[in-house]
Amino acid sequence: MWTTSSAVWLYVGESPLWLVRKFAKTNREMPLKRSITTTLAAAFALLSAPVFAQALTGTLAKIRDTGTITIGHREASIPFSYLDDKQQAVGYAMDICAKVVDAVKAELKMPNLKVALQPVTSANRIPLLQSGSIDLECGSTTNSVDRQKQVAFGPTYFVINVTAAVKKNSPIKTLADLNGRTISTTAGTTAVPLLKKYEKTGGIDVKEIYGKDHSESFLLLVDDRVQAFVMDDVLLAGQIANARNPGEFRILEESLRTEPYSVMLRREDPQFKALVDRTIGGLMKSGEIEKLYAKWFMSPIPPRKVNLNFPVSPALREAFKNPNDRGVQ
């Protein structure tokens, strides 16, 4: 990792000793204690660069020390973060994270920073982030107050509604119509506790079947094994867009709850958090996020060149106007 850049700053532990190790094109290593002037020059260079005015901590220090930033991505969260037909991680969240990576490169002055990709699941994303296996999770993670006790989030980049998909000719028009029906939902999602709570407060009774992933839950609806599939609206739209007869289904207008999606990073890491907030907030202020949104939600996307046709919702418009990292209760 020391071979790619011509000059690398090395920060040793908490000591104020800064060393500069210069690698010439010949890749010849200089003696560590070369001369006092080199050290002084290095110290001067450090002080003059605003970014190094204060010692780096947390994730940024880790990225600089290892020369690598590791991005956690999902494999099937269309269109946020998924593998395309070439098995490359792509998506709306991946594009946003690419901007964050660019900002990290600029901040650390490491244009050749190595970007490692690590697939994560909804079950292991938080432990992997906490253990340091990934530095930033770019997927479809709900920012909730509960989760904020364990991790931190960047500004909300998407807002979803938890609702239900039904067959077009179904008599179900509202969530209350689900009473007495059998519905499917995907195990391990926030829709599950939400639905149970709604059953209790709304006084309705539904039978749930849990699919192990969204396509299995959707299959239950396609085969008429259940009358509705309760899930985040954008994921329902993704399943419907990929169905054999997309016209056969519709999504209810009512919403069980609105949830913000965001990138996930470690807690108590003010420098990295500030960089993420600044970068993603900047995309929103400059309007650049609209272009990214249109690319993934309003145009054909890989692997099957399907168009989700999912315009920006009023809630998301609001989040773009006032970037924030408020979690849902």
């Binding site: 909804s122 079950a123 938080i126 432990p127 989760r147 195990a187 391990g188 999602t189 599950v192 506790p193």
Partner: peptide, 12 residues
């Protein structure tokens, strides 16, 4: 077990 992990984020 997985459900409990998802509710509490205490997978370990």
């Amino acid at each position: 077990t997985r459900e409990m992990g998802e509710y509490t984020f205490r997978f370990f």
